[in-house]
Design a protein around this nucleic acid. Sequence first.
DNA 1: ACATTAAATTCGA
DNA 2: TCGAATTTAATGT
Length: 225
Amino acid sequence: MIDAARLHDIAAWSRALEPEALERVQTAAVERRYPAGALVCETGHKFDHWMGVADGLLKMRAISREGKEVTLSGVHSGGWFGEGTILKNELRRYDIVAIRPSSLAMIDRTTFMWLFENSGAFARFLVVQMNERLGHFIGLLENDRMLDATGRVARAVAIMFNPVLYPDSGRHLDLTQEELGLLAGVSRPTANQAIRQLQAQGLLRAEYGGITILDLNGLKTYGAE
DNA sequence: ACATTAAATTCGA
DNA sequence: TCGAATTTAATGT
């Protein structure tokens, strides 16, 4: 159970819900903390919850057969994920790992499905979110082919501040250059150079253990045209 | 890969 | 409980 005020803070989508739907969400939702490095859910396991990051930062990662680790995507405060797995009722395809101490809200599958089928507001939210993700994945393909390392880092940062996927996120992100490199698919030194270059162009500010976004649109369109 | 710097932790008062 | 010393983590080249 999560009270109304808390839910309002951590789940922007809940603000549009009908009263009955909102009440179900409040009753069903639970919040849990994870320490840095914790494995929130593991590939191949069944984990029947839709999850939102109340606070902190997670990453999705896959591990190849040879044991090589690939970071696929980062999720930070305000982001909700896992709907794909729930809708298809399948096993998790990726690990979810806490990059730093995080607090997660969870909604069980039954409640999720009820919302999907009975709340117009919720269904609309899902369509918008999934469409946003689709655009983001298409952008990633473009990324690999057309952007240099700096462009990839810029894109990785911009994705983390997508206002649809991460509403109410501030301008600041606690993320080391090493993690950013993993996220962007470049080495740590390359990420470092990219960050300095982006900083020199006034798009963001580098800090110890984090970055602050100064020009989101500039990051999003970096390297385009 | 190495040097530098920031932060976190330990330890002694 | 404070601050200096040490260790660890992140950054810069």
